[in-house]
């Protein structure tokens, strides 16, 4: 008779009772997550409502004044520039990265690691050095201008640096691999017989791409876009070196406010605005791209 009492299968936590064993297993993750993400974010958020004295010391009196100050057209314009530079970086990286990732995924098995290595290789060189590399190419007396003058295409050197274009070139160059790698991962694991199957059913290459390849690689497109957009949107080294004072991005504001102006509360408020804008942008993007591409015609 007593044997009938055991009803819950072994291993399932009973309702209303907390599974301490699982929490214990998750402790390391939770610890690092709190230390590295939650605490800094909360600190930034708290700081953004404080103010500072003339020497940069933080005064813990709460107000929205940092956010109100940011609403100045000067700052809003910089936020907008950061946004569209980030956006164009994503678009250009996608246009270059997709064919590249596709090419690598379709390469013979023994060549794939080599190609992937080449994509990652620039990563091993310091970002600052790579940015200066572009300076050598783009500046007034740089390689491109010298070359164009030699072949007689131009009389006077072109102003290639210190504008949005230069920043965009730098951003695309630096963040392209963040687009290529997730794209490669999804394209590579796609079942190629699906493409044969689509062709077999009468789909021309464009339609095969539109109806099969694109929807199936969408996770890679979304992942790559987010990985490219977020750092591009918040970058400060590239705009500082290639954009100068003409092409300031929000990362430069934060950097200047912390290092030069010693206004940590305003820097924090700018950082919060950066994070919120980026998150909102991503949310809209994921919803939009998910619907337009997955929802058939």
């Amino acid at each position: 008779m007593t044997q009938h009492i055991k009803l819950a299968p072994a291993g399932t936590p009973q309702a209303g009772r907390f599974d301490w064993g699982k929490l214990f297993l998750g402790l390391p993750t939770i610890f690092w997550f709190v230390c590295l993400i939650v605490v800094p974010l909360v600190m930034t958020l708290i700081l953004s409502f404080a103010s500072r004295d003339a020497y940069g010391r933080i005064i813990y009196e709460w107000s929205f004044q940092n956010y109100i100050r940011f609403m100045d057209p000067l700052y809003l314009q910089i936020l907008w520039r950061s946004f569209y530079l980030g956006l164009f970086t994503v678009i250009i990286c996608l246009l270059i990265g997709y064919p590249l990732a596709y090419f690598i995924a379709r390469s013979p098995k023994n060549l794939k690691p080599l190609f992937l290595m080449l994509v990652i290789a620039p990563f091993w060189i310091n970002l600052l050095i790579r940015a200066y590399g572009w300076m050598i190419l783009l500046r007034y007396e740089g390689i491109i201008n010298i070359f164009l003058r030699r072949i007689g295409l131009i009389e006077e050197p072109l102003q290639l640096m210190y504008n949005d274009g230069a920043v965009l070139v730098g951003l695309v160059y630096v963040f392209l691999q963040f687009m290529v790698l997730p794209l490669f991962a999804t394209i590579d694991k796609m079942d190629w017989t699906l493409l044969e199957s689509a062709q077999d059913l009468g789909a021309k290459p464009f339609h095969t791409f539109r109806h099969i390849t694109l929807p199936l690689t969408l996770p890679g497109i979304i992942g790559g876009s987010i990985l490219t957009f977020v750092p591009a949107f918040g970058s400060f080294i590239i705009p500082r070196i290639l954009g100068g004072s003409n092409s300031i991005m929000i990362g430069n504001i934060i950097e200047t406010q912390i290092k030069t102006a010693r206004n940590w509360p305003f820097a924090s408020a700018s950082a919060v605005i950066l994070i919120v804008t980026a998150l909102l942008g991503m949310l809209i993007y994921v919803k939009f791209s998910g619907r337009s591409l997955m929802g058939g015609d």
Binding site: D191, T193, L194, E196, S197, A198, Q199, D200, L201, G202, A203, K204, H211, I212, P215, L216, M294, G296
Partner: peptide, 25 residues
């Protein structure tokens, strides 16, 4: 003639059904 120009259809060994489409689609 490319496969999409031939009046021939194939049932693949792996079925190759499009995973993101319903049976109807």
């Amino acid at each position: 003639k490319k496969p999409y120009e031939r009046d021939v259809n194939t049932v693949f060994q792996s079925y190759a059904l499009f995973p993101h489409m319903s049976v109807f689609d």
